[in-house]
Design a protein around this nucleic acid. Structure first.
Length: 425
RNA sequence: GGAGAAAUACCCAAGUGGCUGAAGGGGCUCCCCUGCUAAGGGAGUAGUAGGUGAGAAGCCUAGCGAGGGUUCAAAUCCCUCUUUCUCCGCCA
């Protein structure tokens, strides 16, 4: 949610920032609605002041057993006007709110305009592995090694589901353990949230109303605002943990991480290059989420990027870090860096972590504030999130980058204490 | 799933239609008094959101779990919802 005041005071700045996404906003409509809103408020409030005065006088008269019928009549008339104006006001406010809620976040100043093609690779770590044999893709490898059962997964869950088995399940679990261990070492708090969330969470995270139909609803067919949906990422739950609250400044930054499966419809997104575990309806992810003051937030962002990078580095994977261009940043975010691992079979770098700063966009939507020590006033805080990491993208990278000529796969050293083996064959 | 009870400020709590934006207590902040393992006295203590202002000045509006309604007037009466507690049922 953007600040309406900012839209009114500096329309051009907002329009320019949004245009970096290729987003054309009807800000004039918002400004007109706000003007209307103010004028109605001025009217209805002066009427209410009148009525309050009359009520006071009526009370005095009644106490003195005097006749108040004239004032009561007056007050009745005022009441009719108030009701009318209030109804009109509610209508205008809803229109205004909906219009502003639809606007995406403003990319930070240093974010460049344009789509994916404008993304900038900040750094590449490690190098592409070379093979003196014909490398296989992760679907072949995982199937042959009995790690993933794609066919029976479809039997159970339908298209887009798989089963982790045997060493595959062990490797998955090892990754999760590894991530948890690392985040705990950094002092992040471990959270296991509910997987089914209320509409408000989706709105607060900035995913609704735009993506309302891209999550799984378990009820609320008639009225989505009363239903529950399966979370598409732990961010949706974590970012709403303190909604409606005003935190003490000294409690910030708050650093959390959660493990949850993520449930996504991913309707129409299947491409042959996304076979296997690249895009499923359910995948495991560890998510980091921080609440920070505006002053802290940039440093926290860098910290989270560094944390995600360290996980990939410790696994020994070759990866790169991309700074996303305006149109590639999701709607709620002002800045996003992707960490992308090399997938030999596809010849591309695929995202395993996306670290973003929402600034106060989400906090405005879910009303999360902190009390500023200097002014004593509440202020919206900043929310940051980042995967750390999504396992469904990491396992393909591991099996493909660490495969041997005989079809076996080397297990990253840091995971071996959980897998109990150095090679999966 | 059913029945009942409750929700008031940092905490406890009074308040069944009008001088209640809210008694009283605790806590906290400040001041005064007194020297001794602390006590007493006094003052302050609804934050917030919104409108109008140059304005963290005034003035106004809203705000007693949330949302509606009745009324000239609602913390107080009515309806719906949420949460908590108690009891009953269900529990792969």
């Amino acid at each position: 949610m953007l600040d309406i005041r900012m839209i009114i005071e500096d329309k051009q700045k907002v329009a320019d920032a949004l245009s970096k996404r290729g987003y054309v906003a009807d800000l004039d409509n918002i400004i007109v609605l706000d003007k209307t809103r103010r004028s109605i408020i001025a009217q209805v409030e002066s009427k209410k002041a009148q009525r309050n005065k009359a009520s006071e006088q009526i009370a005095v008269l009644k106490r003195n057993k005097q006749d108040a019928s004239e004032l009561i009549e007056q007050s009745t008339t005022i009441g009719v006007d108030i009701k009318q104006l209030d109804n009109h006001l509610a209508e205008v406010e809803k229109q205004l709110f909906d219009a502003v809620a639809l606007l995406p976040n403003m990319p930070d100043d240093d974010i460049i305009a344009g789509d994916k093609e404008q993304n900038v690779v900040l750094r590449q770590i490690g190098s592409k592995p070379t093979f003196d044999f014909a490398p296989k893709n992760h679907v072949e490898l995982c199937t042959a090694l009995g790690m993933i059962d794609y066919e029976r997964g479809v039997k159970l869950g339908g298209n887009g589901y798989w089963i982790y088995r045997n060493k595959g399940a062990l490797l998955e679990w090892a990754l999760l353990n590894f991530f948890v261990e690392q985040h705990l070492a950094d002092g992040y708090e471990f959270i296991l949230p509910p997987h089914m969330l209320t509409y408000k969470c989706g709105f607060g995270a900035g995913q609704f109303p735009k993506f309302t139909d891209e999550v799984y609803w378990i009820d609320g067919e008639q009225d989505r605002t009363k239903g529950q949906f399966m979370l598409p990422t732990a961010e949706t739950s974590l970012v709403n943990m303190y909604s409606g609250e005003t935190l003490a400044q000294k409690s910030l930054p708050i650093k959390l991480f959660a493990y949850t499966p993520c449930y996504r419809k991913e309707a129409g997104s299947y491409r042959s290059e996304e076979r296997g575990m690249i895009r499923g309806h359910q995948f495991n992810k560890v998510e980091m989420l921080c609440f920070a003051t505006p002053e802290q937030s940039q440093a926290i962002f860098e910290e989270m990027v560094a944390k995600a990078e360290r996980l990939v580095t410790l696994l020994g994977l070759h990866y790169q870090v991309s700074k996303l261009a305006g149109a590639d940043i999701s709607a709620s975010m002002a800045r996003t860096y992707d960490i992308e691992v090399w997938l030999p079979s596809m010849g591309i770098y695929k995202e395993v972590s996306s670290v973003s700063n929402s600034n106060d966009y989400q906090a405005r939507r879910n009303n999360t504030r902190y009390r500023d020590d200097a002014t004593g006033k509440p202020r919206y805080l900043h929310t940051l999130n980042g995967s750390g990491l999504a396992t469904s993208r990491v396992i393909p990278a591991i099996v493909e980058q660490f495969q041997n000529a005989d079809g076996s796969v080397n297990v990253p050293q840091v995971l071996q204490k959980w897998t109990g083996c150095a090679v999966i064959k």
